[in-house]
Design a protein around this nucleic acid. Structure first.
Lengths: 112, 112
DNA sequence: CGGCATCCTTTCCGATACTG
DNA sequence: CAGTATCGGAAAGGATGCCG
């Protein structure tokens, strides 16, 4: 058996393409990568912090992209029941683990 | 100054996001990953082979996605001046080098 | 065989206004 | 402060027909 850390799912061209597409779809959307890279250093950011860090984004898109990242399990959202409201965003462990994978893409791009 | 294989471009959140977006855009398009994974094993495929391998794709999209992959340097196109025409597609070295980077994304996805 | 041109539908996204 | 609601334009993508 020895079916441990080394074992990998078997992929056909179709299944590999399907799975990579699923991964890419998680990153798709005009602003998601920008948001992620502002969280990769482990910082926790408030909604208004992200608005300042990404000046060109509209509130609609910021909220929408954050909702999707949260629904997909990359970002965690914490609401503090205060007045005025305070909401913080940070990466999940899994979201943080995306960083080296994206670095692989950067290395590939630099190789061009 | 020992500025060799270890040296890396310095990235801000903006530049890293911008570069990864550029990489993702090369893969974006409903069918590109499917096409790439049918070429990753080193096989050379004719236009009509790809049509058979990806039955759901329209001719318009197959041609368009192949043009973009070619323009972006991932795929090489060879035309044989015969009647009837014969056109073959294969990965460039750089295109082939994308495979391990995508595998990193697969590993990340499997980790979920 | 290996396309390109055209039309049409769908999805994405920016701008703006409003709210607990 | 942290969103939601609505509108309209732009862009991606599917269906179909024609061509060297």
């Amino acid at each position: 058996m020895a079916d441990d850390a080394v074992s990998r799912k078997h992929h056909t061209p179709e299944s590999a393409a399907h799975d990579v597409e699923a991964a890419v779809r998680l990153l798709d959307g005009r602003w998601k990568l920008l948001i992620l890279f502002h969280l990769f250093d482990g910082r926790v950011q408030r909604y208004s912090d992200l608005e300042k860090l990404i000046p060109a984004i509209s509130q609609k898109m910021l909220a929408q992209q954050l909702r999707q990242l949260e629904a997909d399990g990359l970002v965690a959202r914490t609401v503090y029941p205060e007045v005025p409201p305070k909401v913080e965003y940070r990466l999940t462990d899994w979201g943080q683990a995306l960083c080296p994978a994206l670095d692989g893409l950067l290395l590939w791009l630099e190789r061009k």
